[in-house]
Amino acid sequence: MQELLDKYFRKDKLPHIWCPGCGHGITLGAVVRAIDKVGLDPIKTTVVSGIGCSSRAPGYMKFDTLHTTHGRALAFATGVKHAKPELNVIVLTGDGDAAAIGGNHLIHAARRNIDITTVLFNNSIYGMTGGQYSPLTPTGKLATTAPYGNIDQAFDICKLAIAAGATYVARGTVYNTTQLIGLISKGIQNKGFSLIEVITHCPTVYGRRNKMGTAVDMMKWQKENTVNVKAAEKMTEEQLKGKILVGELYSDTRPEYTEQYTKIIERLQKEGQQ
């Protein structure tokens, strides 16, 4: 642990700003462990985020880090990756950041299959602004802007990413970090656009308002309400009702955006020399 801290964290920026019991620290821990597991060169790795609780994560990480405007992390990251394809680019974002204001950038980054690994910290709420509902807040839940219960339908953000063209899509929980580290690692290794949705918890403004108990209770909820995709194959519809599928949801190979562009450059420069 100490070794990881020394290698990947800006220790002078700790402690972090997240509330006691927040799942974001565990998620960040899983991201760093995945980076370590894959063996990314910290000098050649850029971490980009938008605005919100999750988006404060890069500030603690000893990489080139870019804390951008709300929703725009993937657009900034696209510029970084396209201009310097040798960099590993990781985007850390939240459910409001990626699915609401940044939704268009998400589907287009997925469509291009640009080699960016996106870790979406889904705590079902806008935490930093005090608990407003997001596009990933389940129907019926309470929020400061849904005092009578949320009537919106939530996105299945993983299905959205698959439909838009992402080549690696997975969902994990902060409850099962071993699985989560594995999923993020595979996302990083995928040469193309990867989305890993992390079900995390906000005990302060989401759990409390929705009477979900303590942080520990919320993690237990994650355990009880998720089913691994593999196990789900053998389960009946009745057994799966209301459950959230976790694990590797989609994996495929398609041409990667910056590699395709590099081919154009190489072809033109070859022609130019002739």
Partner: peptide, 29 residues
């Protein structure tokens, strides 16, 4: 641009274009 080793991208909107330009500039371009 590709003839000189540079890179062009048509983004999904103007917001994203400006963001990508900033990201690219931070890499030294």
């Amino acid at each position: 641009l590709p003839k000189v080793g540079g890179r062009f991208i048509q983004m999904e909107d103007e917001i994203a274009s400006m963001a990508a330009v900033i990201g690219a500039s931070l890499t030294g371009s």
